[in-house]
């Protein structure tokens, strides 16, 4: 919660500047986290194509580089479509900082 803004720093009137969902931290909604195994990945980009929220990070040359946890809601589509099982869905509870 400490990264959330106080009332003095929020824009007024319920407004969200820039009007884009890209800057909304929907990653908070996630209960299962996709974990990418770089060693197994063949960069077929099935996950990049199928992700409904553009949360698979890749280079313009077509190399997967990771997952955008700020935005990923944890739907698990990437893990389901991966032919190499290089993405594993794990409970968020495993990642809570002690």
């Amino acid at each position: 919660m400490s990264s959330l803004k106080g009332w003095k720093d929020l824009p007024l009137a319920t407004t969200v500047p820039a009007s884009t969902s890209e800057k909304v931290q929907t990653g908070q909604w996630r209960s299962m986290r996709p974990v990418w195994n770089e060693e197994e990945c063949i960069h077929c980009l099935q996950c990049w194509i199928q992700c409904p929220d553009k949360s698979i990070k890749a280079t313009p040359e077509g190399k997967v580089t990771g997952i955008d946890y700020f935005f990923c809601k944890g739907c698990g589509t990437c893990a389901a479509v991966c032919p190499k099982k290089a993405i594993e869905m794990r409970p968020e509870s495993e990642f809570i900082e002690q």
Partner: peptide, 26 residues
């Protein structure tokens, strides 16, 4: 006006969802 919707050079969204995180602050 402060954040007019018709100011397309400075787009804003009104009335987004704000649950336990921001409703209280607003």
């Amino acid at each position: 006006p402060l954040f007019p919707l018709l100011d397309i050079d400075n787009p804003v969204a009104y009335g987004s969802l704000a649950l336990t995180d921001y409703y209280f602050e607003i």
